[in-house]
Simulated scan of single mutants.
Amino acid sequence: MKRYGSVEAGGTKFVCAVSDENLTIIERVSFPTTTPEETMEQVIAFFSRYENSLASIGTGSFGPIDINKESPTYGYITSTPKLAWQHYDLLGTMKNHFNIPIAFTTDVNAACYGEYRLGSAKGKSNVVYYTVGTGIGGGAIQKDQFIEGFSHPEMGHMLVKPHSKDNFKGKCPFHNNCLEGMASGPAIEERLGQTGDRLSEEDPFWETEALYLAQCIYQTTLMLSPNVIILGGGVMHQSHLIEKVRDLFEELMNGYVTYPAIEEYIVLPKLGDNAGTLGCLTLAKELTNH
Rank of each mutant, 00 (worst) to 15 (best):
N96K: 12
S79V: 01
T80F: 13
N68L: 14
G137L: 02
F98K: 13
L159H: 00
H87P: 04
K82W: 04
S79G: 08
A84H: 04
Y50Q: 02
F98R: 14
E154K: 11
N109A: 03
D66W: 01
D144S: 03
A121P: 03
Y116V: 02
P36G: 02
F174V: 01
F104R: 12
S120W: 05
I65Y: 00
G133F: 09
Y113R: 12
A84D: 14
G133V: 11
V132A: 04
A110H: 06
A111R: 14
A45N: 14
Y74K: 03
S53H: 04
T39K: 13
P173M: 14
L91S: 12
M94L: 15
S164N: 03
T78Q: 05
P101Q: 15
Y50C: 03
G156F: 00
G170H: 09
A103I: 01
G119E: 15
I136M: 05
E37H: 04
H87N: 14
N126W: 00
C178I: 01
V160L: 10
Q42T: 04
I57T: 15
S71H: 06
K122Y: 04
T39R: 14
S120Y: 01
K161E: 15
G123E: 13
A103N: 13
P72R: 01
K165V: 10
G181H: 11
T134C: 10
Y74S: 06
N167Q: 13
G137H: 03
S48H: 13
H157K: 05
Y129F: 04
N109H: 12
G149W: 02
N109Q: 10
A55I: 05
H175V: 05
C112K: 09
D166E: 08
T106S: 15
Q145L: 02
I77M: 11
I67D: 09
R49D: 06
F98Q: 13
G63S: 10
Q42E: 15
G138P: 06
Y74T: 03
G137Q: 03
P81H: 07
A45K: 14
G149A: 07
T134S: 15
G170M: 13
S48C: 09
A45G: 05
